[in-house]
C-alpha cells in the first residue's frame, strides 16, 4: 500500500504539520483577542499580550457588563434574531411547498420561480432601497431589522429541494384521504422536514446576529442599535459617546481590553451554535453543486 512507503510517511508528517499550522492560524486571532480581554490595562496598552493573558483581570468584562448601552443592544439583537428567524422560517416553509411541485401540477410555478430567481440576480441598488424603506415608514423602526430580510431565495431553494426528496406517495395518500394542501403541508411535511428547518433556522440566526449595516443605515438613534451595529460604531468607528466612561474610569480600564471583551461577547453566540451549525451547513453548502 502506498501509505507504507517511506516517502509517503515523510510527506504525511509534513502534510499534517502544515495543515494543523493553517488550522491554528484560523483561530489565533480569536485567542489573541480573548487573551487581551482578560489582561490588565497596562499590559494591553504596552502591547505585551500574545496568546495568553498578562496580569489576569476581569475588569474589562465587569465594565462591559455594566454598560447599559451594551446590554440594551444585546436585547435588541436577541429580539431581531428570534423574530427574524421565526418570520423567515414561516414564510420560507410556506413558499417552498408550492415551488417544489412539478410544473404540470402547478402551472404558475415557473412564473413564481422567476420572480424569486430574478430578485436574486438583480437589485435596484442601495439608494432606491433606502428610499423605499423611507417611504414605508421603516426608518428608525425596529421592524427594519426584521422584515426586509424575510425572503432569502437561497433558503427557499434549500427548503424546496428537501421537499422534493420526500416520497410522493406520502402526499398522494394524504390527498386521497381528503386532506387539502395546507393539511398535507403541516401534518405530513412539517414533521419529516425538521432537520432542514433546523438548517434554515441556523442560517437565519447567524445572518441576523451578524447583520450590522441595516442598523447603521436605517436607525438614527444609537440606542436602537443591535449589538453588531453597536460594535461597529464603538470599535471600528471609535465612537466613544456611547461608552459612558468617566476620565477616572478611563485611567483604570484601557479601551483595548474593553473592546476585546466586547468583541468576544459579540462572537460568543456564534461560537456556541457553531457545533450545531457545522453539522448542518455542509448539507446546505453542497446542495445543488453535485447533482445529476
Amino acid at each position: 500500500m502506498y501509505y507504507k512507503s517511506l516517502g509517503y510517511r515523510v510527506f504525511n508528517v509534513f502534510n499534517i504539520g502544515f495543515l494543523i499550522f493553517l488550522a491554528v492560524l484560523c483561530i489565533v486571532p480569536l485567542i489573541h483577542v480573548l487573551a487581551i480581554s482578560f489582561s490588565s490595562k497596562a499590559a494591553a496598552d504596552a502591547s505585551l499580550v500574545g496568546l495568553w493573558p498578562v496580569e489576569f483581570s476581569i475588569e474589562a468584562y465587569k465594565k462591559t457588563m455594566n454598560n447599559p448601552a451594551f446590554l440594551r443592544s444585546i436585547l435588541i439583537s436577541v429580539a431581531r434574531t428570534v423574530l427574524g428567524t421565526a418570520v423567515t422560517l414561516a414564510v420560507t416553509f410556506l413558499a417552498a411547498y408550492p415551488l417544489s411541485k412539478d410544473n404540470s401540477v402547478f402551472r404558475s410555478r415557473s412564473f413564481y420561480s422567476w420572480l424569486f430567481v430574478f430578485s436574486m440576480i438583480f437589485n435596484g441598488g442601495l439608494v432606491p432601497f433606502y428610499i423605499v424603506i423611507q417611504k414605508l415608514g421603516l426608518i428608525n423602526s425596529f421592524w427594519v431589522l426584521v422584515l426586509p430580510a424575510t425572503v432569502n431565495t437561497f433558503l427557499v431553494i434549500l427548503m424546496l429541494n428537501f421537499f422534493r426528496g420526500i416520497p410522493k406517495e406520502l402526499e398522494e395518500a394524504a390527498l386521497i384521504d381528503g386532506a387539502g394542501h395546507f393539511k398535507t403541508l403541516f401534518r405530513i411535511y412539517l414533521p419529516v422536514s425538521l432537520p432542514s428547518i433546523a438548517t434554515i433556522a441556523l442560517f437565519s440566526m447567524v445572518f441576523h446576529w451578524n447583520s450590522w449595516f441595516d442598523g447603521l443605515l436605517y436607525l438614527n438613534d444609537s440606542r436602537d442599535f443591535p449589538l453588531a451595529t453597536f460594535l461597529q460604531t464603538v470599535i471600528i468607528q471609535r465612537d466613544m459617546s456611547s461608552m459612558s466612561m468617566s476620565p477616572q474610569e478611563m485611567e483604570l480600564i484601557s479601551q483595548t481590553t474593553v473592546n476585546a471583551a466586547q468583541i468576544f461577547i459579540g462572537a460568543l453566540p456564534i461560537l456556541l451554535v457553531y457545533p450545531f451549525l457545522q453539522r448542518f451547513f455542509v448539507k446546505g453548502m453542497t446542495l445543488g453543486s453535485v447533482k445529476e
Binding site: V91, Y97, P98, G124, V132
Partner: peptide
Amino acid sequence: KTWPFHVMLLPAVICLFLFSYLPMGGI
C-alpha cells in the same frame, strides 16, 4: 385546485415585491 399554492406564496411574494421589485422602480 391550486388556490392554496397561491395563498402559500402570498407572504413571500409581498416581501419580494416590497423589498426587491419596488426598489427596482427607483432606478
